[in-house]
Computed example of a mutant assay.
Amino acid sequence: MQTIAERLNSARKGIDQAANSAHRPPNSVKLLAVSKTKPVSDIIEAYEAGQRMFGENYVQEGVEKVQELSNLDNIEWHMIGPIQSNKTKVVAEHFDWVQSVDREKIARRLNEQRPESLPPLNVCIQVNVDDEDSKSGVSLSELASLVEFVSSQERLCLRGLMAIPKANPDDEQQRQTLSKLKELFDHYHTSLSNFDTLSVGMSSDMVEAIHHGSTMVRVGTAIFGKRDYPNR
């Protein structure tokens, strides 16, 4: 069985190969290791193998890990799951990034509750690019309004867009979805400072996402192995 370090190395090689085939510069795509449901010991193993960016989906679990691993230098924590309004305070106090902002109420609360002692909270707006009822994310028609609001918040730094495209699309649908995301990203990237992140692509669609401009891919199972899904 491969170690976490070996799996990380394989993931990085896959990213580099995809970037190279898309004629993109080395290191133009970051790897976010999604550690939800996995033990702290796995995160430490990945950290010791050079990984610094970790993504968590569940607020309580994520906060506990942030606290337990607070002694690790340069570790960067991303909240990538849905956030209820009663959980914004602990998220604002503990995470470096929130990639799942999808409405003004959540953005306002994160801004108000981000401690002054910390730098502004890095934020990505989650876009429901395929208009799926089962997924979180702002609709395309409401995106511009939310971009404007988040940009106006002093304790937030709008870094880009995040999306979870439809699972198992046909090739044409996948290209259309990823092209639309790239178009949206390019539009705001040219007009907003610090807007540098397009977080899209997981193990199954990573290569195509990188070919369509993704700057950050989110990989979990391929690094940490199959997950358990507790009731939360």
Results as ranks from 00 to 15, higher is better:
Gly213His: 11
Ala5Lys: 09
Ser139Phe: 01
Arg175Glu: 15
Ala107Asn: 00
Thr37Ile: 10
Gln67Lys: 13
Gly14Asp: 15
Met53Asn: 14
Phe224Ile: 05
Ile15Met: 12
Ser35Val: 09
Pro120Gly: 03
Val207Asp: 15
Met53Ile: 15
Val127Arg: 00
Phe195Gln: 10
Arg232Ser: 12
Gln51Ser: 06
Lys13Trp: 13
Phe185Trp: 05
Leu69Phe: 11
Lys36Gly: 06
Glu76His: 14
Pro39Asp: 14
Asp102Gly: 13
His78Ile: 11
Leu8Asn: 04
Asp42Thr: 01
Glu148His: 13
Ala33Gly: 09
Ala11Thr: 01
Lys180Ser: 10
Arg175Trp: 06
Thr221Cys: 05
Leu198Gln: 03
Ser145Asp: 14
Ile43Gly: 07
Tyr188Lys: 02
Asp196Tyr: 06
Val200Ser: 07
Glu76Ser: 11
Asp42Gln: 10
Gln84Ile: 04
Tyr229Phe: 15
Glu93Asn: 04
His94Gln: 11
Pro230Gly: 05
Gln67Glu: 11
Gly62Phe: 01
Arg24Phe: 08
Gln99Leu: 03
Leu140Gly: 04
Phe54Arg: 07
Val98Thr: 05
Ala18Arg: 03
Asn122Cys: 09
Lys87Gly: 00
Arg218Gln: 09
Tyr58Gln: 11
His94Val: 02
Glu68Ala: 15
Ile4Val: 11
Asn122Arg: 09
Arg103Gln: 14
Glu6Gln: 15
Val138Arg: 00
Gln60Leu: 04
Ala19Met: 08
Gly14Cys: 14
Ser70Ile: 12
Gln99Met: 03
Leu181Thr: 07
Arg103Ala: 11
Glu132Ile: 07
Arg114Phe: 00
Ala5Gly: 08
Leu69Cys: 04
Asn231Asp: 13
Ala46His: 08
Ser134Ala: 13
Val150Gly: 01
Lys36Ala: 11
Phe185Pro: 01
Asp228Leu: 14
Ser21Tyr: 08
Gln174Thr: 12
Asn74Lys: 14
Phe195Ile: 06
Glu64Thr: 09
Leu140Arg: 10
Leu181Cys: 06
Leu69Thr: 06
Lys226Met: 14
Gln99Asn: 12
Glu148Lys: 15
Lys135Tyr: 10
Ser141Thr: 14
Leu146Lys: 00
Glu64Phe: 00
Thr215Met: 01
His211Leu: 06
Ala107Gln: 00
Val34Met: 11
Ala33Lys: 08
Gln60Val: 06
Val147Cys: 10
Thr3Arg: 05
Lys226Ile: 05
Lys65Asp: 02
Gly81Ala: 12
Ile210Glu: 13
Ser191Phe: 05
Asn194Leu: 01
Met216Phe: 06
Leu69Lys: 02
Tyr58Ser: 04
Ser139Gly: 12
Asn111Thr: 02
Val101Phe: 01
Ser204Tyr: 10
Ala144His: 09
Leu184Asn: 03
Gln84His: 05
Leu110Trp: 00
